[in-house]
Simulated scan of single mutants.
Amino acid sequence: MTVFILRRVFQALLVLAITSLVVFLGVYAIGDPLEILLSSDATMAERAQVAASLNLDQPLPVQYWTFLTSALQGDFGRSFVYNRPALEVIFERLPATLELVTTALFLSLFLGIPLGLWAGTRPGSLSDESIMTGSILGFSLPNFWQGMMLIMIFSVWLGWLPSTGRGETGTILGVRTSYATWDGFTHLLMPATNLALAQVALVIRLTRTGVQETMPLDFVKYARARGLGEGRILFVHVLKTILIPIVTVLGIEFGSLIAFAVVTETIFAWPGVGKLIIDSINMLDRPVVVAYILVIVTMFILINFLVDVLYSALDPRIRGRAQ
């Protein structure tokens, strides 16, 4: 087990190092931040002074080495726009994104599991075909189009929900959250639904497939022979079995949702890291862009590492194949 974990840690560090190099070169090869940060009538002396203060006057390898040594100490540089540590700017916006993503995951489970159970227990029926057709639409329709339609229907036509912003937040157990106020909750509902639609479709398909694969198994037949009702069999025995792959997939999808919440946050003006990265790209705020990408990659690596370790603990065969 120790060898397996060390191997995974080494692989994670290698991926992170390669990613940092690729991201740094890709971001720093695009544009000149001085063109945005300074006015067009700035003198050469002013440009040189600002370039020196931002370490932009050094050769690219020197800039990367400075960035790498500082990043290993938790310093990803200062934002060109906010004049604050880039990591601080990201962590300031991260709670709003985590709130949005967590709500989207809850909605995907709340809607996807019941619909998947219904479709899985009635294969070939009209309800099964309708649910599966809806899941295809959830995968196929562009996220930005779904968001605009939600705004058009629930904000413009019906006037039920606000279209943009996070709304008023409150404090629950010392954490600022939109759940603490009705205004904040109404602002959260529509962007979370937009982000959850594709995940609902995924959960429906995983649940339906799991039900159809589990129902013919011997332990289900034995439960029926004992006289247990279909509801108890489905919600106690079958559901407990099929939840393992669903939770595993959604755990990995959690990182994807954080990374791909950019579109939803931009459409609904949600003040999370997704909107921050779009603004930073437009302003060529390189430290924030690099720090954001590395934070997201680190989250992906940690989630996958934890899944690998958990699986290896549950099934030693996986540990043996990986060594």
Rank of each mutant, 00 (worst) to 15 (best):
89 V>D: 00
322 A>Y: 13
129 E>C: 01
196 A>H: 00
211 V>Y: 03
263 V>D: 06
168 E>Q: 14
244 I>K: 09
62 V>H: 08
174 G>D: 07
154 F>D: 03
21 L>R: 11
166 R>C: 08
132 M>R: 15
210 G>K: 07
86 A>G: 05
301 I>G: 01
299 M>Y: 15
191 P>C: 12
39 S>Y: 14
120 G>N: 00
37 L>R: 07
86 A>E: 02
75 D>C: 14
24 F>K: 07
298 T>Q: 13
86 A>Y: 02
279 D>Q: 15
297 V>H: 03
180 A>V: 11
143 N>K: 13
161 L>Q: 01
19 T>M: 07
156 V>G: 00
84 R>K: 15
135 S>P: 06
202 L>H: 00
109 L>D: 11
96 A>L: 04
167 G>C: 09
37 L>M: 10
77 G>V: 01
81 V>D: 12
113 I>W: 06
102 T>P: 04
189 L>G: 09
295 V>R: 03
84 R>C: 09
208 R>F: 05
199 Q>D: 11
81 V>G: 08
281 I>R: 05
16 L>E: 09
53 S>Q: 15
154 F>L: 14
15 V>S: 14
302 L>N: 05
275 K>W: 06
10 F>W: 14
197 L>E: 04
127 S>M: 06
295 V>P: 00
196 A>Y: 00
138 G>K: 03
215 M>E: 09
271 P>R: 08
13 L>G: 09
206 L>R: 02
100 L>N: 05
232 R>C: 10
301 I>K: 00
7 R>V: 11
59 P>C: 10
206 L>Q: 05
62 V>T: 12
214 T>H: 05
107 L>E: 01
307 V>P: 01
128 D>M: 02
194 N>P: 07
40 S>E: 11
320 G>T: 12
177 T>Y: 01
80 F>I: 03
241 T>C: 13
36 I>K: 15
211 V>C: 04
210 G>M: 08
51 A>T: 05
